[in-house]
Simulated assay, not measured.
Amino acid sequence: MITLANIRDWIKSLDIGENLYIGKLDNKKDKSVGIYQREGYGGVNMAIGGIDATKTAVKSISILIHWNKNANETEQAAQSLYDKLLRIKDVTINDHHIDYLYLAVPEPVDIGTDDKGVYERVIWIDLYYQRKEEN
């Protein structure tokens, strides 16, 4: 299984943002990146033979880039992360090899500002990875 904390640690290795978190953070600091579970779509993909015969799983996440009060700097920071994701090679997260990374948006999506005027952008990704027996 890959958790949001595992993904946060991987994103941290891409050297984007000063503060990385999962879940809700009431007092978000500038230059923060948040990792959230994204609602899945469609049904469960399972091989004939059931879960034991299924070799892959998917983790759908939303990456929030909560940057600062400068729209241009926020766009640049978000695009920098997006570009790194476009060029990523050979990823392993929590001992699971990532076979395929699907960028579900064509570029970081501008979602405006929070209640304090800090600009935010979102990137949606799906991580397809090799399943392992869970204890």
Rank of each mutant, 00 (worst) to 15 (best):
G34F: 00
R87E: 12
I98N: 03
P106M: 01
Y36H: 07
V91Y: 08
Y119V: 06
A71W: 13
T54I: 06
K12V: 09
K69S: 08
D30F: 11
L25D: 14
D90T: 12
A78T: 05
R121M: 12
K12S: 10
G23E: 05
N70E: 12
K116I: 07
R38Y: 07
I98W: 07
G117V: 01
R131E: 00
N45I: 12
A71M: 14
K12I: 08
K24H: 14
D30K: 11
P108I: 07
G43Y: 07
E39N: 12
L25P: 06
Y21A: 02
L81Q: 00
Q130T: 13
Y128A: 09
T3C: 05
L127Y: 08
K29G: 09
S62M: 09
Q37H: 12
R87G: 08
A53H: 10
L81P: 08
R131C: 02
I88Y: 14
D9F: 02
A5V: 15
A104T: 11
W10N: 07
I35M: 05
W10F: 11
I88M: 12
L14I: 09
Y100G: 07
S80W: 13
N19H: 12
M46R: 12
K24Y: 13
Y102L: 12
G23T: 05
V118A: 01
A77R: 00
W10I: 04
W67I: 04
T54K: 03
